[in-house]
Design a protein around this nucleic acid. Structure first.
Length: 576
RNA sequence: GAUUCGAUAGCUCAGCUGGUAGAGCAUCUCCCUUUUAAGGAGAGGGUCCUGGGUUCGAGCCCCAGUCGAAUCACCA
């Protein structure tokens, strides 16, 4: 393993601490009685409450000025400056704790505990005057240092921001340490979930859990992840939705059930798609989709209020207002509104004409429903910024929704569109088992025609319906998409702690033993690694003359005076 | 999957027409006081993503690859 100079330095510091009988990773708890936030908010009004504080966190900056120093400590809530004076933390003769430990053996990134009192500096910054300092955990890897300054107008300017998306997502822990707004985003995501959970629980609906591993995948149209159970020797799928299980529970007699579900779809990735994502699904008996629209409006409006204290949320360049009531269009109305074309009574050839005219891409396999959906998706959806309900979808696209009570060829379904994207999907659930079987069979036909996202027939679910499911309204809300909007995040990766990333290929690093087995002296191993020959295969392919040169050159460069250079014969022997 | 762009010090980035690898921050040494991106003096730190090629000479040009980003496509 290659270590940078700074990493080696810190490992050395760790050793030095041990030699001073200072445990770099102590086990005892450290009593914390205040947070940075509490100090900053309350010190001015109640300074006497902060005479004996104890706080822990990560040291994020340090400015040493001889026998006194300023540094910053960061806890979960924020940062605060602290002031350390040598003679405060070392009242006796022995000044090691300040001169050696604080100044030399501590680094930015170390986790420390402080005791002391709060005061204000001459410049007016609330700070902690430290009387006792304890190392709680030594950090061996240097952090990217992000500095922020404020100009006279109070604009915060960030220097050397840690922005590389790859590193931020692969090492989210670093992102969270140095980019405080990231921590805030995820707190808001949790607040959003809590708000919705509370809203639904207050209405008496039951939060449940249903299988993630399913023998048949259903409830949505998507390609699944496939896996295998060894003991049962059977194929299982990671769920693409939990809809059919929640409906079974409605059959079983619960009148309202919901689940925050991780779903998995084996499809493309984009800033709106992660292979695993979160939905909350809700089913309520004896209700219909009109009732559900009212509920969703209320629920999301409340979530906005809980997070922001207002129904207005800044998203990119737009301000989105979740205040009830939201605009409602039928799908046909929306298409007519945005294109001027009334397609409500068109047949398939006429729809194809319209697509051509509007430059909507189509292909042969698309039926009437898909064509309508395509027109909507191309011409309307991206233009819907404020929360808007689109209702009454073509039946072909909605095999689990109930036929419309009045309109032929449509189902009682709605989606809420916001910022140009779907945030929820709901319908009056189809509970006629005969019709449901027919719809599944139509899906099977689509599957035979090559649609690899067509639904599969679930006999057990049909059996449940045959026992009788009450009329039910069902809902699915994409939590990630909603979180993106509520936190003003442009990418789904910004609201998922550990978004899926392509695996990094790691070469099989050879160990010292592997080199020695070839006759390489152990002291030469670091040289070979430094040259870049980290696998035996690479070493074997090296040109002996060049290798000999490189080794001697690198030895000099690394200033390994005590290491004896190999001769050419010796190098050649490694490669035999 | 397609197109475009990118990869240089721990971090953020510069690097001219192909000619000895640079800055700021971070790190190390020295001075230092309630400082404000504290300051001053000095030092160390590089597989210029990988592999080929062109060339007397490649961070830079060419080819292939890896990884990433953006846009598009797919995702009812």
């Amino acid at each position: 393993m290659h270590l940078s100079e700074q990493e080696l330095q810190r490992r050395k510091e760790r050793e030095n601490l041990l030699e001073l009988n200072i445990e770099p990773y102590p086990s005892a708890l450290f009593e914390v009685n205040v947070t940075t936030e509490e100090i900053k908010e309350n010190f001015d009004s109640n300074p006497e409450n902060f005479k004996e504080i104890s706080i822990a966190g990560r040291m994020m900056s340090r400015r040493i000025m001889g026998s006194a120093s300023f540094a910053e400590i960061q806890d979960e809530k924020g940062r605060i400056q602290f002031y350390v004076r040598r003679d405060d933390i070392c009242p006796e003769e022995d000044k090691t704790l300040y001169n050696t430990v604080f100044k030399k053996l501590l680094d930015i990134g170390d986790i420390i505990g402080l005791k002391g009192f709060v005061f204000k500096t001459q410049v007016g910054e609330i700070s902690i005057h430290v009387t006792d300092l304890k190392l709680l955990s030594k950090s061996l890897k240097p952090l990217p240092i992000v500095k922020q300054t404020e100009d006279e107008e109070g604009n915060v300017k960030t220097h050397d921001a840690f922005t590389d998306p790859e590193l931020r997502y692969r090492q989210r822990y670093v992102d969270l340490i140095v980019n405080p707004e990231v921590r805030k985003t995820f707190i808001q995501r949790t607040q959003l979930v809590n708000s919705i959970r509370g809203f639904l629980a207050d209405r008496g609906y039951l939060e449940v859990e249903t299988p993630v591993l399913q023998p048949l995948y259903g409830g949505a149209a998507a390609r699944p992840f496939k896996t295998h159970h060894n003991t049962l020797d059977m194929t299982l799928y990671l769920r693409i939705a939990n809809e059919l299980y929640l409906k079974r529970l409605i059959v079983g007699g619960y009148d309202g059930v919901f689940e925050f579900a991780k779903d998995f779809r084996n499809e493309g990735m984009s800033r709106f798609h992660n292979p695993e994502f979160t939905q909350v699904e809700l089913y309520v008996a004896y209700k219909d989709y009109n009732w559900m629209m009212d509920l969703v409006e209320e629920m999301i409006e409340k979530a906005a209020l809980d997070l922001h204290g207002t129904t207005k949320v800044q998203v990119g360049e737009n301000v989105i207002d979740f205040k009830r009531p939201w605009k409602r269009y039928t799908m046909f109305e929306a298409i007519e509104h945005f294109t001027g074309i009334d397609i409500s009574s068109m047949d398939e050839p006429e729809l194809r004409e319209v697509c051509k005219k509007l430059n909507v891409p189509v292909d042969e396999t698309m039926g009437k429903g898909k064509l309508i959906d395509e027109i909507f998706g191309e011409q309307c959806e991206p233009l819907l910024i404020q929360p808007t309900y689109i209702t009454d979808y073509p039946v072909e696209m909605s095999p689990l929704a109930k036929r419309h009570r009045e309109k032929e060829g449509l189902v009682e379904r709605f989606e809420a569109i916001c910022n140009g994207k779907e945030i929820c999907n709901a319908f009056s659930e189809l509970n006629d088992p005969i019709d449901q079987r027919k719809r599944f069979e139509e899906q099977l036909e689509l599957g035979k025609r090559g649609d690899d996202e067509a639904m599969v027939l679930d006999e057990d679910f049909l059996r449940a319906l045959e026992y009788g499911m009450p009329p039910t309204a069902g809902l699915g809300v994409g939590i990630d998409r909603l979180a993106m909007i509520m936190t003003n995040s442009p990418s789904i990766q910004d609201v998922i702690f550990f978004p899926q990333m392509k695996a990094k290929k790691k070469p099989q690093y050879a160990s010292e033993k592997d080199y020695v087995a070839l006759g390489v002296r152990a002291e030469l191993v670091p040289i070979l690694q430094k040259i870049g020959l980290v696998t035996i295969e690479q070493l074997k392919q090296a040109n002996p003359n060049k290798l000999f040169n490189d080794v001697c050159g690198m030895r000099k460069k690394m200033k390994l005076k005590e290491v004896k250079n190999p001769d050419l014969e010796e190098v050649k022997n490694w490669l035999v």
